[in-house]
Nucleic acid binder design. Structure first.
Lengths: 183, 183
DNA sequence: GGAGACATGTAAAATGTTACATGATTAC
DNA sequence: GTAATCATGTAACATTTTACATGTCTCC
């Protein structure tokens, strides 16, 4: 399905970027839902250039350092749009190693399971707090109102979804811990 | 990290199974959070046997059909337990192709985006309804009360988490659609 | 001058999916 | 008999991660 291809086309549709810039985006908010290492990105950029979906310009940073700044072509925009507007099924599996452990909970002692769940809850709470902060920052920057017209709407959608994902996980962990403590 | 290894050890810790049986489990509730194709399972079973974590007995089904029924060894149980009780970080990225599209929403027309989100909401609602049914079935079978002692506790945890995951997604999709419809 | 960020690539290994290949059993 | 399910494997390909490899720029 070559999802990385579309991730790159989507990023370049927002503006020209170097491969290095893309890794930064994957480390930021977008990284909640998609990411790739530079060792995967650089070959993909070469391939997309060969296919005519993107093109680059070499820019000199400082006095020597060469940087390739990529942009999306008309063909690339068509390709991106086709993928974006295609209805796709909900995936059967979204892998979650912690939930795999939860399924095997009977192989642990009660105390061990409680420790595991409590640790996970602490970490998820921390992540939720971090995401909430990022959302507050975005609201500071863009105002508290978001609509389809807002240039930050995509950013807003990703942050709110990630935050609710963590909050939902935390609530479930709390409920599970309560059931465990009752014996 | 060889997570499939631990998935197999965990399944065998609950009881002896053939490779085929494992694919069935990955198609059922557990498949919400982990899965593997038979082409990945069979080589892994061979490897785990070589490593001494599992062993098998050949059983004749009917008059000719050979079936390998695997069981976990003492070494396998130790290995499983070590993984289960290890605290792990929350993953930075949980890949979600739909959310990648959401991030690039500005590359769509309002009507296109609404169609995409409405389609996703319909599909997620359907999945949530299916999971709710499975949970009701489990409660019929095991009673409405679940505790650490219950032999179905792992099953219960996985179903409730999957259901809440879908419900959370649906609520977020509804909110997003409202924002879009306001313009 | 050194640390950390900027910048780009390749190689090897691990993981996961799709396709190829075969045959038995069960229920209709 | 025939379709669906049971049952096991390999081969080829695609994706992803980790490690190898190199060099520049900016700030302190």
């Amino acid at each position: 399905m070559r999802v990385l291809k579309y991730a790159i086309l989507g990023l370049l549709d927002k503006g020209s970027l170097s491969g290095y810039d893309m890794t930064s985006h994957f480390k930021a908010e977008l990284g909640q839902f998609w990411s790739a290492k530079h060792s995967q990105i650089y070959p993909e950029l070469k391939k997309l250039t060969d296919e005519g979906f993107i093109e680059f310009e070499t820019v000199i940073q400082g006095s020597k350092l060469e940087k390739k700044v990529y942009s999306i072509t008309a063909a690339g925009k068509r390709e991106l749009h086709e993928w974006l507007t295609a209805y796709q099924p909900v995936p059967n599996t979204v892998k979650d190693e912690f939930m795999l452990k939860a399924y095997f909970i009977s192989a642990m002692e009660p105390g061990e399971a409680e420790g595991l769940f409590a640790d996970q809850l602490a970490k998820r709470k921390q992540k939720a707090a971090f995401l909430k902060e990022r959302l507050e920052e975005l609201k500071q920057e863009a105002g508290p109102e978001f609509s389809f017209q807002s240039p930050h709407f995509g950013h807003y959608l990703v942050l709110t979804r990630a935050l609710e994902r963590e909050n939902g996980y935390c609530n479930w962990l709390k409920k599970a811990l309560e059931l465990m403590k009752r014996g």
